[in-house]
């Protein structure tokens, strides 16, 4: 495979996997939120925040995908055929942290969010549930950090 194909593979994975995780996560949390809002529409604000938390992984993936696409020349097309295989593979490996961790952490975070909806429904306040859910996100943040550093560092 040529370098640019590795870079394209990395771009796709960085977008696809966290995207799947976030879609699953936001979807699950959304269903739980609908149940709470059906009982009490005034809690929709807090429920929306809880629903939105697993969305960030997909955005992190998007950032990394875009950075790879733009740095490797996929976007402009300029010099893309000359991208060395070693650089292309570096881009591919740089995509892996956010791709894999993003997928898992979005899904797991969503499960905490759904449980947090219970707190909203029963106690009427979402702060504590949000704090619980944010713990899971830590690892996605570390992953995106490493991914971005790796992409920027490819020479």
């Amino acid at each position: 495979m040529t370098g640019i194909i590795w870079a394209a593979l990395g771009t796709s994975l960085a977008l696809i996997l966290p995207g799947i995780g976030s879609s699953l996560g936001v979807g699950m949390a959304g269903r739980a939120a609908a149940g709470v809002i059906a009982e009490d529409p005034e809690k929709s604000g807090q429920c929306t925040v809880l629903q939105l938390l697993p969305a960030t992984q997909g955005i992190y993936g998007f950032i990394v995908a875009f950075l790879i696409a733009s740095n490797s020349g996929l976007l402009s097309g300029a010099g893309s055929s000359e991208l060395p295989v070693s650089m292309g593979m570096s881009y591919f490996y740089a995509a892996l942290p956010i791709a894999i961790v993003g997928l898992v952490s979005a899904y797991m975070q969503s499960r905490v969010c759904c449980a947090g909806m219970n707190i909203v429904a029963k106690q009427g306040e979402g702060g504590k549930g949000i704090v619980l859910a944010i713990m899971v996100e830590t690892y996605a943040i570390l992953a995106v950090l490493v991914s971005v550093l790796m992409v920027v560092g490819v020479k």
Binding site: I59, Y60, I63, I141, V144, L145, V148
Partner: peptide, 10 residues
């Protein structure tokens, strides 16, 4: 606290 860096960068 690396999250500060990551979120700022993001």
């Amino acid at each position: 606290y690396a999250r500060v860096f990551a979120l700022g960068l993001a």
